[in-house]
């Protein structure tokens, strides 16, 4: 019982500590980066259970804000190799288990 309790506690700790957005790789300018990151956080929080909707929301917002042809991938595990326009890529982790990759390529 104690072990499982501890495990739960650890998990909660992990969730709490690792809830912040962590940018793994980006070449965006400062302002754009902050905006995109906030957008991703908002979308992932809004559609916590539906990655597809979150990705759709991010893509549509990015299209509006920074011009068309944005692509978004959200998931817990995936590999990718993409071609993106320079200064238009953001790869971040969020919520301890999600990876979000946003890039532009028209």
């Amino acid at each position: 019982m104690a072990g499982t309790g501890e495990g739960k506690k650890e998990e909660a700790d992990y969730k709490r500590l690792h809830s912040f957005p962590l940018i793994r790789h980006t070449d965006m300018p400062e302002e754009m980066r902050v905006e995109t990151m906030e957008l991703c956080v908002t979308a992932c929080e809004k559609f916590a259970t539906n990655n597809e909707s979150a990705a759709k929301m991010i893509k549509e917002s990015m299209d509006k804000k920074f011009g068309s042809s944005w692509h978004v991938v959200i998931g817990e595990g995936f590999g990718f190799e993409v071609t993106h326009e320079v200064k238009n890529l953001l790869y971040m982790f969020f919520g301890g288990s999600l990876a979000v990759c946003v890039w532009k390529c028209s």
Partner: peptide, 24 residues
């Protein structure tokens, strides 16, 4: 054409976990 770059990475649970721990 606007300059382009390639980027590739793999996202999975342990990588995400490692990244967070490292950052903390």
């Amino acid at each position: 054409p606007p300059p382009r770059n390639n980027f590739s990475a793999t996202a999975n649970q342990w990588e995400i976990y490692d990244a967070y721990v490292h950052e903390l």
